[in-house]
């Protein structure tokens, strides 16, 4: 297996990296978005959102500290969607056919795309962590190491979601709308900006339940705990399960017997 499949995986990762390198503005925009939230939003709401002592924190923390895992999740979420956008672009440009007619199992080609996108996600997440250090956000240095598996798993899960979305999006023009219906609800109905109990306390019970079931909430919580060297088992399992479901559905969607390609007419 390694002799035949490995070069394909490497090639897909290399191509995505080269393309990312050519689009340097992408890194900048990936950082500006969470940086604005960190610097402006977190500063503005510093005294409004009182965050009590909740695990994994052992003491009172600044709102900036609380919001970092959510913003790391935001970086991963946006890059996952960006990868999906690239899939739609490749399909419009005909490059997708080249990929899908490579002599590799389809699931492996999609997995390679997922790995490539996740590598870029992790790169951007660490760039954002560096930015946090620059703004003197108080995070444990060892957390930089502990958080890697969590970033990887969350990046894969959100990338798989992007992959799944790219199945049903036929044109680039349709993508913006889909992003609005996915990114913003996922981000806002989660623990990225406020803890779950805040929603419950404010009486927004249905939002509380929605956020509890949102896989993005669990991605954020998994990252939050990992930053402090702790494992949030439930969140990790939910993220792993969501990754499996999203990826299997994406593979199904790209199956020529049943999925997207079967439904697309190109006589």
């Amino acid at each position: 297996m390694a002799t035949r499949h490995w070069p394909a995986l490497v090639a897909i990762c290399q191509r995505e990296t080269i393309k990312f390198w050519h689009q340097r503005g992408r890194l900048l925009s990936a950082l500006v978005r969470p940086a604005l939230w960190l610097v402006v939003f977190a500063a503005g709401f510093q005294n409004i959102f009182g965050v009590s002592i909740i695990p994994p924190y052992e003491t009172y923390i600044e709102y900036q500290v609380y919001v970092v895992p959510g913003l790391l999740g935001m970086v991963l979420l946006f890059n996952g969607m960006q990868s999906s956008l690239a899939m739609v672009y490749d399909r419009e440009m005909g490059l997708m056919r080249l990929l899908l007619t490579a002599p590799q199992p389809r699931w492996f080609l999609l997995f390679s795309k997922l790995v490539a996108g996740t590598l870029l996600s992790i790169l951007q997440a660490y760039a954002f962590l560096a930015l946090c250090a620059l703004f003197q956000v108080d995070l444990p240095w060892l957390g930089w190491v502990f958080v890697l598996p969590a970033l990887t798993l969350a990046g894969l899960m959100l990338g798989a979601l992007g992959l799944l979305l790219s199945v049903s999006i036929r044109q680039l023009e349709n993508f913006a709308g889909t992003m609005n219906f996915v990114i913003f609800p996922m981000f806002f109905i989660s623990t990225a900006l406020y803890p779950l109990w805040k929603l419950q306390e404010s009486g927004a019970t249905w939002l509380y339940y929605l956020a509890s079931f949102n896989p993005f909430t669990h991605a954020v919580e998994m990252i939050r705990f990992a930053l402090y060297g702790q494992l949030n088992l439930l969140s990790s399992l939910v993220v792993l399960g969501a990754l499996g479901i999203f990826f299997l559905l994406a593979v199904w969607g790209y199956d020529p017997q049943r999925g997207l390609i079967q439904r697309t007419r190109q006589a």
């Binding site: 002799t3 035949r4 499949h5 070069p7 394909a8 490497v10 090639a11 897909i12 290399q14 191509r15 080269i18 393309k19 050519h22 440009m93 005909g94 490059l95 056919r97 080249l98 990929l99 490579a102 002599p103 590799q104």
Partner: peptide, 23 residues
């Protein structure tokens, strides 16, 4: 429909294809 990655060089396009074929 042309299926070249226009932002990459000729050689890089060929390299990419060769690796997809496991060469």
């Amino acid at each position: 429909q042309p299926a070249l990655d226009l932002d990459l060089s000729v050689q890089t396009n060929l390299n990419f294809h060769g690796k997809l074929h496991g060469l």
